[in-house]
Simulated assay, not measured.
Amino acid sequence: MLAPEELATIEAFMAETENIDEYKRALAVLTLEDGSPLSRTGLSVKHVQRIRRSFRSIGTEAFKDKRHNNAPVLLSKSQRDEVNIMLTTTTPNDHGYSNSPFWSTRILATVLKRRYGVLSASRIRSYLLFRTSKLSFHLLGKQDEKADPQAVAQWKDNRQERLNEEFSDSDTVILCEDEMVLTQAATTQKVWTPRGTFPAVIETNRTRKNRNISGFLNLKTG
Rank of each mutant, 00 (worst) to 15 (best):
H138E: 12
V83G: 01
T90W: 03
R50M: 08
S57T: 10
K46A: 09
L74F: 08
E61N: 08
R115C: 05
A109Y: 02
I58A: 06
H47M: 10
S76E: 13
N70W: 14
L128G: 05
R50G: 03
A62D: 02
F102Q: 09
F130C: 00
P101G: 09
V83Y: 01
K142W: 14
T91Y: 06
I107P: 00
R114A: 12
R67E: 13
I85A: 04
T88K: 10
S57D: 06
F102M: 11
R114L: 10
N99V: 11
A62F: 03
H138T: 12
N69Y: 11
R123A: 01
H68C: 10
R106D: 08
E61P: 01
G117F: 08
N93D: 13
V48F: 04
V48M: 06
H68L: 15
L140N: 10
T91Q: 04
T88G: 00
I51M: 06
G96S: 14
R80M: 07
H68N: 14
S104P: 03
F55W: 01
E61A: 12
K66I: 14
L129W: 00
S57Q: 08
T91D: 01
D65A: 11
D94W: 10
S100C: 15
L135W: 06
F63S: 05
K134Q: 04
H68P: 02
S133F: 00
R67K: 15
F130L: 03
L135Q: 06
T132E: 02
V83L: 04
F63E: 01
Q79L: 10
I58K: 13
S136F: 09
T132K: 03
W103M: 08
I107A: 06
K46V: 07
L140A: 09
L74E: 03
R53V: 02
